[in-house]
Simulated scan of single mutants.
Amino acid sequence: MANPWRGDVALVIDGQTQVMRLTLGALAELETVMVSDSLMAMVQRFESSNFTSNDVLALLRAGLRGGRCDVSDEALLHAEIEGGPLAAARAAAELLARAFTVPQP
Rank of each mutant, 00 (worst) to 15 (best):
L76T: 07
G15I: 02
A28D: 08
A89I: 02
H78K: 15
S53Q: 13
D14S: 10
S38E: 05
V71F: 04
L60W: 02
V9H: 00
G25V: 11
L64A: 13
A75L: 06
E80D: 14
A93L: 07
L27F: 02
F51G: 06
E82C: 05
S72C: 08
A75Q: 09
G67S: 10
L24Y: 09
L77V: 13
L27K: 13
D8R: 00
A99W: 02
A26C: 09
I13M: 01
A99L: 04
Q104K: 12
L27G: 07
Q104E: 12
V71H: 00
A79G: 10
A89M: 02
Q18E: 12
L96N: 00
I81C: 05
I81N: 04
R90E: 15
R45F: 03
S48G: 08
A88T: 05
G7R: 02
V102H: 09
A26E: 05
T23A: 01
R6W: 09
S36C: 13
L57A: 12
I13K: 00
E80F: 03
R98P: 12
S36Q: 14
A92F: 07
L77Y: 11
A88H: 10
Q44G: 09
G67M: 10
Q18M: 12
N54I: 12
L60A: 04
N50L: 11
R98W: 07
L64Q: 13
N54P: 11
L95T: 01
W5A: 11
N50C: 06
E74Q: 09
E80V: 11
L59R: 06
N3Q: 08
Q18G: 06
C69N: 12
S38W: 05
L24A: 13
A87V: 09
M40P: 03
L22K: 12
L27M: 12
L30S: 01
A62E: 09
A87M: 12
M34A: 11
L86H: 13
R61W: 08
A89W: 01
L57I: 05
E47H: 10
E31A: 15
A28T: 03
Q18F: 04
A2H: 00
A89S: 14
H78P: 00
L77I: 10
D37A: 14
M42P: 04
G83M: 07
F100S: 05
A10N: 03
H78W: 08
L11S: 01
L60P: 06
S72M: 01
E31Q: 14
M42I: 13
D73W: 02
L60G: 04
L95V: 02
Q44A: 14
L64D: 11
L24P: 00
N50K: 14
